[in-house]
């Protein structure tokens, strides 16, 4: 067992967990933040994406212990009193249907926009589609997800 301590959505969290506990299981089962999902067992689908120290991470591919001392943001921590522009864009553009991949898409979308802005690069449709390589959606055909991220990129 290992005691892990980190900040999750701005709040200090600490727990004694088995060494093998994945970050996603810590978030879902220990902290009961169930907006972060598990859609596969091979790090392909991206429904588990969270931000660790400001970077998008697949939380199924990281041990909770490896996030010791980190600042973790989950989908529940994205809105700051009002919806984040990325969240609003998904609603505006019908960027979600069943909603299962949506938290991961939003977390990846925010990270993508931040990285491109920091690098001064244009996030056009081709770039958005390329950047979504690690997020699978079965409902939307990606059409409206791409539109959503493009809208948010213009507002963020």
């Amino acid at each position: 067992m290992t005691i892990v301590s980190m900040t999750v959505n701005g709040t200090a969290a600490s727990a004694d967990v088995e060494d093998r506990t994945l970050l996603v299981d810590y978030i879902r089962e220990h902290l009961r933040l169930t907006g972060t999902h598990v859609g596969c067992d091979t790090s392909q689908c991206g429904t588990c994406v969270v931000h660790v120290d400001g970077k998008a991470v697949k939380s199924c591919t990281m041990l909770a212990a490896a996030a010791e001392g980190a600042e973790v943001t989950t989908i529940e921590g994205v809105a700051n009193g009002e919806l984040h522009p990325m969240q609003r864009a998904f609603n505006d553009n019908h960027g979600l249907q069943c909603g299962f991949c949506t938290p991961g898409m939003i977390m990846s979308g925010i990270d993508m926009v931040n990285r491109y802005k920091a690098a001064g690069r244009e996030l056009d449709e081709a770039a958005i589609r390329h950047e979504l390589e690690g997020n699978i959606c079965r409902c939307t055909g990606y059409h409206n997800i791409v539109k959503s991220i493009a809208q948010a990129a213009s507002e963020m």
């Binding site: 609603n91 979600l96 949506t102």
Partner: peptide, 13 residues
């Protein structure tokens, strides 16, 4: 726009 979206985009589904 969809009424149900809010819970999904905020992780409350």
């Amino acid at each position: 726009k969809r009424k149900e979206d809010k819970r999904f985009i905020t992780g409350k589904g």
